[in-house]
Design a protein around this nucleic acid. Structure first.
Length: 429
DNA sequence: TCTGGGGTCCTAGGACCC
DNA sequence: TCTGGGGTCCTAGGACCC
């Protein structure tokens, strides 16, 4: 290793990930403005660069632009998380080939540790980009810096400036050039600084990323806390936010959905909770955990004329559990009483907290709850896997037809990489 | 008519203890 | 009238991320 060889952090992320995934199996979408919608085809959650250029805002409700869309050739897709999840796993496995230290940060991003001279690192960045493009058909950008915050900044640079061909290593800039770039960027462009903090920072005369980098860390900590102080150090090239191993086990597990049509009766809500309890407990079992407590909530629309109403209930389990029956009982017993008949509830959810590995709770059999011994949750999972989601259910959820309130996805693409019956078809000319 | 679904970390304040 | 000081643990809520 030469003197100029250094350890650096790279951030690799897929451009317009969901929209790019849609294009992989539907090349007609190439070059066209594409948006992907949230559950229930509610809002825009991803936009191709062409859609951004049309001025489509992130989070805009689809119903507000659906009439206008055809006139500009804008195409919408329902979100297809099965496809995105699978392609994401493939991206991450390619990244492992380039570094032993990879932190999967989100569905479309990862931090990697890389070592080399500035020129070598730049070349590695281009090889990563090339590999993911040719093997998966997904476009990525790579940002390289001395800390995660710098890598994020570099990645944003790679996206913005066409001349870099999607790869940016901050070390390639002179100090003067770096000052110039940071001074041109508002502080809320920085990872970790959003609307509220940037407003408070502005009141202290900190407007640009350069202002923040050059601010006094002690004063920053006093006024804004350690999180912002870390950003100051990270901007200066001192890495404070270490690379983490992949977090396979979550500390909180939630299942929450909006309804396709409002739920207005206790009876219906009971059915909703029965289904959600089953689904959230499945997520918990999947990661081998049990939960010590839960919050269950329902809510009316914030956009309706009627006053917003959002009852919730907290419950603690005497013995941590992943049993759907226990979860359902704790969720529905109090919440259902607080549901006011006739109100239009548009969403509900169950949030499990105090989550820990199941093995850490081995009790004498005498104290094992009866449902635990029956392995009810696992049995439900198996039956549903084999015979479909409507084959079996708990209590009010145990009937076979689709429900009115279940979410709608009317523009769903094929789950081409995970379902045999949805393979993509290729036509020869 | 129609407005997402997950997560994380940190801080402030209350309860409680000695 | 005057009414300690330090520590821990827990929870709710704020702020952020994708």
């Amino acid at each position: 290793m030469s003197d100029s060889s250094q350890r650096r952090i790279a951030l690799v992320d897929v451009n317009s990930f969901f929209a790019s995934c849609e294009r992989v199996f539907d090349p007609k979408l190439m070059g066209k403005p594409v948006v992907v919608l949230s559950n229930n085809d509610g809002c825009v959650v991803a936009r191709s660069s062409e859609a951004k250029a049309l001025g489509v805002a992130m989070g805009v409700p689809w119903f507000k632009i659906s009439a206008w869309a055809p006139s500009v050739g804008l195409v919408a897709r329902s979100s297809n998380y099965e496809l995105y999840g699978d392609l994401s796993a493939r991206v991450m496995s390619i990244l492992q080939e380039f570094s032993a230290a990879v932190e999967v940060y989100s569905i479309d991003e990862a931090f990697l540790e890389l070592t080399g001279t500035p020129e070598e690192l730049l070349a590695t960045g281009h090889r990563i980009k090339e590999a993911i493009q040719t093997r998966l058909g997904l476009p990525v950008c790579v940002g390289i810096g001395r800390s995660k915050t710098q890598a994020k900044l570099a990645n944003a640079g790679a996206k913005k400036s066409a001349g870099m061909n999607g790869v940016c290593n901050l070390d390639m800039f002179s100090a003067e050039k770096l000052d110039f770039i940071m001074a041109a960027l508002p502080v809320d462009n920085l990872w970790g600084i959003a609307r509220r903090l940037s407003k408070r920072l502005a009141a202290q005369g900190i407007h640009t990323i350069k202002d923040l980098r050059d601010a006094d860390p002690v004063r920053i900590k006093k006024k804004f806390g350690v999180v912002v102080q870390r950003s100051v150090y990270e901007l200066r090239g001192i890495d404070c936010i270490k690379l983490e191993g992949e977090r396979l086990v979550k500390n909180q597990v939630m299942y929450s959905r909006s309804f396709a049509t409002p739920v207005t009766t206790r009876k219906q809500m009971e059915e909703v909770l029965a289904v959600y309890a089953q689904r959230v407990s499945k997520r918990l079992r999947k990661q081998g955990s049990v939960a010590g407590a839960l919050t269950c909530f329902a809510g009316t629309s914030r956009f309706a004329n009627e006053p917003f109403h959002s009852p919730y209930v907290n419950a603690v389990f005497s013995i941590p559990t992943n049993d759907p029956v226990e979860i359902l009982k704790a969720s529905s017993s109090v919440l259902l009483n607080r549901i006011e008949e006739g109100r239009k509830y548009v969403r509900a959810g169950i949030l499990l907290h105090d989550v820990s590995p199941k093995e850490s709770h081995q009790y004498l059999d005498l104290f094992t709850p009866v449902h635990e011994r029956r392995q009810l949750g696992e049995t439900l999972d198996k039956v549903m896997e084999k015979h479909g989601a409507f084959s079996i259910g708990l209590g009010a959820a145990g009937f076979k037809s689709a429900r009115e309130w279940e979410m709608k996805r009317e523009m769903l693409s094929l789950r081409a990489t995970t379902r045999w019956d949805e393979l993509a078809t290729v036509y020869a000319k």
